[in-house]
Design a protein around this nucleic acid. Structure first.
Lengths: 171, 171
DNA sequence: AGGGCTTGGTTCAAGTTTGAAACAAACCTA
DNA sequence: TAGGTTTGTTTCAAACTTGAACCAAGCCCT
C-alpha cells in the first residue's frame, strides 16, 4: 500500500496546529514563570491537587490525570516539595504508595497566581474563539485524546507502509 | 475588575486541549525517535529545509518558521550537523549570518522516515476527525497563532487583575 | 511459606530547553 | 568616520525531560 500523504487541507491544519500549540504553551509557560515562578506543568500539578479530595492524590493518579510519565512527575514533585508547595505522605493501605498533598502555602500560591493565569488563557485562547469554536475545540481534542489512550496499549500503526517519493513533506 | 473565570465549557475545552496536545506530541516524538532517531522538532527542521529553495535557510528564518527560539535552534542544528543531516554554511551577503543546508544524507533520512511519520499523524489525528473538523482545527489554530504573533511585540495582558476566591481552578 | 510476576515509585545518565549574557558584524547618525 | 545601537548567532549554567534500570511491596499460585 502506497503512503497516503496529507492533503493540502490536512497539511495546513497540521502546520497551523503545531505552530499554535508551540506558541500557546510558550506564552503560558512564560506568564506562569513570571508570576508564579514555575512552568505550566508544575502549576497544573498544584491545580489538580487543589481540586482533589483533601487536596491530596497518589503519584500514579496524578500522573494519569496530567498525562505525564511517573518519572517526570517525580522530578516535578521533588522540586515543588523543596519549595514547600506540597508534601509527600506515606500511603496507609499500600506501603509502596506515595501521596502528594498540597500545603497551605501551595494553595496560597495557587490562589495568587490563578487570576493572572486565567486572564492569560482567556486573552490568548478564548477571547479569540467563538462560542462555537470552543465546542469544536473540545470535541476535536477529545477525539484525539481518546485515540491516544486506548487502554494504554500503545497499539496503532502495526502496518506502516514504506515507500519513497521526491519531496517528503509534512513537517 | 473581578476575574472572569472560565465557564464550564471553557474549562472542559481547555483541559481536553491540554491533554490532547501532550499525548499527541508524545506519541509523535516516540514514533520519530524510534524510526528516525530524532524528536519531532528535529525532524521538522529537516522537513522545512527540504522544502526551501536549494534546501537551505538562514537560522533566523528557520527559527521563525518553526516558532522556536534561536538558541533552541542552535542546539538542535548543532546536533543535526554532528549527525551529518545538515551543514552550516556562511552567508555571503551578511557575514553575521549562518545558513543551515540539508545534506543528501539528511534528505535521505527524511525520505525514509516520512511515510511512517505521515502514517502516524494520520492515525492519531486525521483518521479521528471529520473533514469538517480538519477545517475547524485549522481555523482555530490560525486564530490562536495569530494572536500570539502580533508583530513579535509580546504585548498583551498589561492589565491583569488580581483577586482571590475560594478554589482556584483551571489547570 | 516460597518463588515469580506485577505495580508504585524513584534514580540515574544522557539529551533537551530556557534565558540571560557574550560576541561580532551591520547599520545608523552626528 | 567614530561611536552607539541593532541584528544574527552562539555560549553557558541551570532547569527540565526521557527512558531504561532499579527497588520495594503487593499479589498470585502451588
Amino acid at each position: 500500500m502506497t503512503t497516503r500523504w496529507l492533503s493540502p487541507d490536512e497539511q495546513r491544519a497540521w502546520r497551523a496546529y503545531i505552530a499554535a500549540s508551540l506558541l500557546l504553551e510558550d506564552a503560558i509557560d512564560r506568564q506562569l514563570q513570571q508570576d508564579a515562578g514555575m512552568p505550566h506543568l508544575y502549576y497544573s500539578i498544584l491545580s489538580v491537587l487543589s481540586e482533589s479530595p483533601e487536596r491530596r492524590l497518589r503519584m500514579t493518579d496524578l500522573a494519569e490525570r496530567l498525562k505525564i510519565t511517573r518519572s517526570r512527575l517525580t522530578y516535578a514533585v521533588t522540586r515543588l516539595e523543596k519549595d514547600g508547595m506540597l508534601r509527600r505522605e506515606a500511603c496507609r493501605h499500600d506501603k509502596r504508595g506515595s501521596i502528594a498533598a498540597l500545603t497551605d502555602e501551595g494553595f496560597a500560591v495557587l490562589e495568587r497566581a490563578a487570576p493572572g493565569h486565567v486572564e492569560t488563557v482567556r486573552s490568548f485562547l478564548f477571547d479569540r474563539l467563538s462560542e462555537e469554536q470552543v465546542g469544536q475545540l473540545e470535541e476535536i481534542s477529545a477525539a484525539i485524546a481518546q485515540g491516544l489512550q486506548e487502554d494504554g496499549t500503545r497499539s496503532a500503526a502495526d502496518d506502516v507502509p514504506w515507500r519513497r517519493r521526491s519531496s517528503p513533506s509534512c513537517s
